[in-house]
């Protein structure tokens, strides 16, 4: 009897595991098989036309959007984490509140960020559908991620480093910037790379903040679609299914690259 129950439970575990990873393999395989043959050079033309739905402008837009979002979010995230770990006293009520708000921010769905971005950056500040409005929205969205990973990276720096630095006569600020931050760089970088992954995959927060114009941007106030938005538009229009598959391949490759790099960096962190 006990043997039978054990066998049944074990087969459930095995079946679920096979389903989980089977789905992942199937998804990746299916997208690659359907998409790779359509990765033609013309899909990487400089300009998008309704006949040749080139994804090149969207790729450039994605890179711009990512850089700009990181430029806004990293300083705020880094400084917040430095405050929380290095400056705030233990049991500080403010720290508790900041952690709570940061966790709440992390749980807000991207469409709500999109609505907020539309109401605040696009309409209230008058930036219109633009790269600037899109990346401002995204930077609020990735802020909690950057705060959390930086916090963890800072916490993992041993206190003996700080004590040694103080002992040599360095001040608090010098210790933070010259001793703690450099040793925490790999951890922070792993967080930043995860944030890049979220930006690249984001759609719902961008449709009504950055818009869907498939051209290279003239300036920061021009509307631009990222690769994910491009893919959504292609698949909802329904005329360019093959090109949508090809775009999915590019997105998958980017995600794979991002995950590998962050894993390699994270492994380095644990080695130290």
């Amino acid at each position: 009897m006990a043997k039978q129950t054990s066998f049944i439970l074990k087969s459930f575990v095995m079946a679920a595991t096979i389903i989980t990873f089977g789905i992942l393999l199937f998804l990746i395989g299916y997208i690659l098989i359907k998409g790779v043959p359509y990765l033609t050079p013309s899909l990487f033309n400089m300009s998008y036309t309704s006949e040749n739905v080139s994804m090149f402008p969207s790729i450039i837009n994605t890179v711009l959007m990512t850089l700009l979002s990181l430029m806004i979010a990293i300083p705020f995230g880094l400084f917040t984490a430095i405050y929380l770990v290095e400056y705030a006293k233990r049991g500080n009520k403010l720290v508790e509140i900041i952690r709570l708000t940061s966790e709440t921010l992390a749980g807000i769905p991207s469409i709500v960020y999109g609505l907020f971005g539309m109401l605040f950056f696009v309409t209230y500040l008058g930036w219109g559908y633009s790269i600037l409005a899109g990346s401002a929205t995204l930077s609020v969205m990735i802020l909690p991620l950057i705060i959390r990973t930086t916090e963890e990276a800072l916490k993992s720096v041993p206190d003996s480093y700080r004590e040694a630095s103080f002992g040599l006569g360095a001040g608090q600020l010098r210790t933070v910037f010259h001793i703690v931050l450099p040793s925490a760089v790999p951890g922070i970088l792993a967080g930043v790379i995860l944030a890049i992954g979220r930006i690249v995959g984001e759609t719902a927060a961008l449709i009504y903040t950055a818009g869907t114009v498939a051209k290279l941007p003239k300036d920061l106030l021009s509307s631009a679609r990222t690769l994910s938005v491009h893919m959504y538009t292609l698949s909802s229009e329904g005329f360019h299914t093959n090109e949508a598959f090809a775009t999915a391949v590019v997105l998958l490759i980017i995600v794979l690259l991002i995950n590998t790099v962050s894993m390699v960096i994270a492994r380095k962190v644990t080695k130290i």
């Binding site: 998804l27 995959g201 759609t203 994910s228 893919m231 999915a248 997105l251 998958l252 995600v255």
Partner: peptide
């Protein structure tokens, strides 16, 4: 990490 559009 797979984007939701790709899942969709």
């Amino acid at each position: 990490g797979i984007p939701s559009v790709v899942y969709g």
